[in-house]
Amino acid sequence: MGLIYALFIQGLQMVLVLVLAPGLLGFTRKVRARLHRRQGPPIVQPYRDLYRLVHKEVVLADNATWLFRNAPYLIFATTWVAAALVPTFASGLHFSWAADLIAITALLGSARFFLALAGMDIGTAFGGIGSSREMLFSTLAEPAMIMLFFTVSLVAGSTQLSAVATFMVTHATLRVSLGLALIGLIIVALTENARIPVDNPATHLELTMVHEAMVLEYSGRHLAVIELAAALKLLLYISIIACIFVPWGMAGVNDDPLAMLIGGATYLVKLGVFAFMMVMFETAIAKMRVFRVPEFVGGALMLGLLGVLLLFVSRSF
């Protein structure tokens, strides 16, 4: 019985992230529009878009290969698996030991690898420019993420997100290193999700786009799957930050359904608050030049390294 319950909760988590992800995107768009004093599309618009896209016919370029056709599903699958392993409303899920923070980073790296290859498959100038820049950003964002996760795991004594969350609830303190990690993770999250100071998700101006340039040739259900993966990725980053820095309210794995409900409600609140803060930040800041981005992300790497260094020197930082 306990096993079935645990499996059910794990399955619920997988479905939950999938269902919530487009809604989160819709919410950010709505808030953004309101901040611009526009009415904005309804929150359910991303769901409608996805529904419309999956029912459309796919138009493939003449020389598109099997890699191009399969990449969206692989990108989606790796992102989904990563997102399913991050504790959202409950920690210590049944399969949470399958991958730790480093593995989650690497899973996202797999998704990026396929996305960049898909961008190069047709052999257009735009696809290449997107892939090239995406890989440039990743060369700094990925080590930054690893170092920031190092900081967190050195404090918590574990690289398992569930264990980190439990530690943070029981031993919550103010730490210099955790402060550094929070700022760094926000920078990485903005970069990896192609948010404003790095990339503008709402534009098709060729010189400013990175993510959009890579998926330019996609249409129909392929595009839908990629968009869904991008939404999942945003949800995943917010969930990670929430799970590490504000783990309160999360249910344990064996708690009763009521605790799970409370966990779910607090999770929704956390998502809303973080998304709102992100949009506020985006609205207040201008997009950077491409070659200013490495300095921005490099800052996150420095923060991670500084945090790890401080913790290596003295455990009380």
């Binding site: 103010l174 210099v176 402060g179 700022i183 420095m302």
Partner: peptide, 25 residues
């Protein structure tokens, strides 16, 4: 005791961080 110590460290660490921001700016 522990908390006041941590807060002091956090603020001092914040100064180091802002110093880095100055180098970056």
């Amino acid at each position: 005791e522990r908390f006041s110590l941590d807060a002091a460290h956090l603020l001092a660490g914040g100064m180091v961080l802002v110093s880095f921001m100055m180098l970056y700016q």
